[in-house]
Design a protein around this nucleic acid. Structure first.
Lengths: 231, 231
DNA sequence: AATTCCTGTTGATATATATCAATAAATAGG
DNA sequence: CCTATTTATTGATATATATCAACAGGAATT
């Protein structure tokens, strides 16, 4: 972890969380004075599940995975953490513990904001509080939808969902590098890695996607959406 | 639905949401002036998924089920709605639509609070906003935990979880009336109704619970918890 | 009381999915 | 550049779970 700040201030940061727009100059300064930066190498853990929520996290550059360490050491990948997004599990307002682990996938430049300061501003700034409520609500809605999808869809549909998530949310492109291993794709879609391999191959054989071990290209998006909805 | 209010005011209501303690007398009056009551018969729909979140809901007496209407008309039961709890899906702060349907199980006396008024108070009262954040966060954390449990546990563990939920959260008693049908228990634990029947029988045969079609009694709680954790 | 319509129950079977074992390919370290 | 280690792939098999079919029992309706 580097001790030198690469970002000069929150005020001028181009990748900052959208909700910071509701802060006064003084509040933004307060945030800026109570943040620190760190750089993580691929694979390194940025936040550990169960540790105290001393900080809210933001990613300036790079990508990370957020996951819950579940039963028998089996992980459950929740999302890909991206620049500009608040990374703060619901535990912050429940048991003051991080709900999930965050681990760097690429090199990650991270920004930590003191959570007590953050929380204090939430108390006095209604618009900021509402922005946080919107953020947490969106994530909560996402969890509910995902829970239903995981429960009611078969493997093909679940994997299609994951492929579309990378295309629509993570890379905003029909062609992208698959930054997760087959094992990890399984941890995201609740399937065994062998099944991930087999279904990716099926999707390729039927002309829906192109795939080699590290690259994915969505060729027939309509069909992929159909698979996502129907199975 | 009755037009007469059975509850005289929020100020004196003994079943009100805990977070109302942070409101000033004026704010509580404002809430009270912008609420209306209604009584629902078993089976009736109180809030419909997808409809506008014009109101936050509270239950004064009775019980309801909250569920998402998922794929192919298959429902997913989220929780049992109980008196004293805020019933407001995350959609309220995302797309202004109810995320799930709420249907009465018993006769339900419900209290509707105008959501715009509610939201306005959130903006100006920091402690109330924080209380709402805690409430929403607790539900979000619950969803995440549930998602992992549904994904990683086998049928026995999932059903054990449901039985413990009724005991610990809904009835606070080791013996209770099973207010859901086998079909609905399946919609809560993601299993076919036939499997619910079979596993309930197994649990009874092995002396963990007593069960007839409408009554459940937890006989060996330790063992039930063990099944919940291990399978 | 007869009828209808649910819900619950049971056994047989089909299907989805995980696990196991073996090998191939890719990657990291020396 | 070679070796060690992880990751990907494939086929065979085991397991978990859903579906189907048939019937029983209760509650509601006529």
């Amino acid at each position: 972890m580097s001790a030198v700040n690469l970002i000069s201030s929150c005020e001028t940061c181009t990748r900052r969380w959208k909700n910071f727009q509701h802060l006064t100059k003084e509040e933004l300064n307060l945030v800026n004075e109570n943040r620190y930066e760190a750089t993580f190498k691929p694979g390194e853990i940025i936040l550990k599940q169960g540790s105290p929520t001393s900080n809210a996290l933001f990613i300036a550059t790079g990508m990370a995975k957020t996951y819950i360490e579940g039963l028998n050491g089996k992980n459950f990948i929740i999302s890909i953490a991206l620049p500009g997004r608040l990374i703060l599990g619901p535990g912050a307002y429940v048991d003051s513990r991080h709900t999930y682990t965050v681990a760097a996938i690429t090199t990650v430049q991270a920004c930590f904001i003191n959570f007590e300061v953050f929380k204090q501003i939430v108390r006095v700034n209604g618009a900021f509080a509402e922005g946080l409520l919107e953020d947490i609500s969106a994530k909560s809605l996402g969890s509910l939808t995902r829970m239903v999808n995981l429960s009611q869809k078969k493997m093909h549909g679940r994997l299609a969902d994951a492929l579309l998530y990378f295309s629509d949310v993570v890379f905003k492109n029909d062609e992208y590098e698959m930054i997760l291993s087959r094992q990890e794709l399984g941890e995201m879609t609740n399937m065994a890695k062998e099944c991930v391999v087999r279904i990716l191959k099926e999707l390729e054989d039927s002309g829906v996607i192109y795939s080699d071990s590290s690259q994915i290209k969505i060729i027939d998006r309509e069909k992929l959406i159909q698979i996502s909805v129907k199975r």
